[in-house]
């Protein structure tokens, strides 16, 4: 049954598997795909219906498809402001996060120094921290720094989430780059920083891209910190702002679905481009841990 073992082309291999098995395999994958896609499809369809058409109690695929919800969303709500806030916070998290996790990952991958094992351990343990134990004291720390309801404060909070995992991942990636390259750099008279910056960073670009993506997405989709730290409508990120659409006093599913589509499309496109790297980065990190 394990047909992948033959190096012959696909047609020859496919003949080995019985027709029934092939049908079964496709049926399995098709139904999984249907489940994966259904909610997403439904949201796209709903967003195209008139504003109140979500209040139907029957299954309707289309009813007067139009872009009204999108127009409403962009003209009458704060969506664009929230979107801008999200972009600012996520980009800031990404830039700073990539930089510090790359240097740390490199140090952990190449040097043996006192304090290395404790650092590795704390990177791992930090990933276990429930948001709940940190959120109150973090709120206090940020408040005493005057960083509540502030983009910078939220960025700092997100760094605590993104950096441990990213540093861990970068370390795994640097481990896959041969040490001989560093040695050559050192022999040619580069300082340790020079080696890192001029030889290794350019080589690690795929890993860096993955780290960048991960930290961006972490900040882009985070809910708890955004809900707790952002107080005024002006500073809401998308994750917080969208909650207003389906709050206790209103349920604007038309607007919400349109907003969902607008948020998801760019994220999904970027994601599909980098996903192969993402898996390699994850598994490289895991296997070398």
């Amino acid at each position: 049954m394990v047909t992948t073992t033959r190096t012959a082309g696909p047609p020859a291999v496919r003949r080995e598997r019985s027709r029934a098995a092939s049908i079964g395999l496709h049926a399995l994958l098709l139904s999984a795909t249907a489940i994966a896609l259904f909610p997403i499809m439904w949201i796209v369809l709903t967003s195209l219906k008139p504003r109140d058409a979500w209040r139907t109690s029957t299954v309707q695929l289309f009813s007067d498809p139009s872009l009204d919800n999108y127009v409403q969303l962009l003209t009458t709500t704060d969506f664009l402001r929230w979107f801008a806030n999200s972009v600012i916070v996520a980009t800031g998290t990404m830039v700073f996060g990539v930089f510090v996790s790359a240097t740390t990952g490199y140090a952990l991958s190449r040097f043996r120094f006192p304090g290395m094992r404790p650092l590795l351990w704390s990177l791992l343990v930090t990933q276990m921290f429930p948001v709940a134990i940190l959120i109150v004291p973090l709120y206090n720390v940020l408040a005493s720094l005057g960083l509540i309801n502030n983009h910078g404060g939220l960025m700092l909070a997100y760094l605590t989430v993104a950096v441990p995992f990213c540093a861990w991942m970068m370390r795994g990636y640097f481990n896959t780059i041969p040490v001989e390259i560093d040695e050559a750099g050192r022999v040619d008279g580069l300082s340790p920083f020079g080696t890192f910056w001029r030889l290794i960073v350019p080589l690690a670009r795929p890993g860096l891209a993955v780290t960048a993506f991960y930290s961006f997405v972490t900040a882009w989709g985070e809910v708890a910190y955004a809900s707790a730290f952002m107080i005024s409508n002006d500073n809401y990120t998308l994750a917080r702002g969208l909650q207003l659409f389906v709050g206790q006093h209103m349920a604007e599913w038309g607007l919400l679905t349109a907003a969902s589509v607008l948020i998801a499309v760019p994220a999904a496109l970027v994601f599909l481009v980098v996903q192969r790297n993402l898996v390699t980065g994850l598994t490289a990190g895991a296997n070398k841990a």
């Binding site: 510090v100 240097t103 120094f113 290395m116 930090t126």
Partner: peptide, 26 residues
């Protein structure tokens, strides 16, 4: 080891200030 320590310093500082302090306060 100073260069290794210099390279991890930013992360250590971020973790200490934003996780260490809140954690001990929590």
């Amino acid at each position: 080891h100073w260069y290794a320590w210099a390279m991890i310093a930013p992360v250590v500082i971020v973790l200490a200030v934003l996780i260490g302090i809140p954690l001990s306060r929590g």
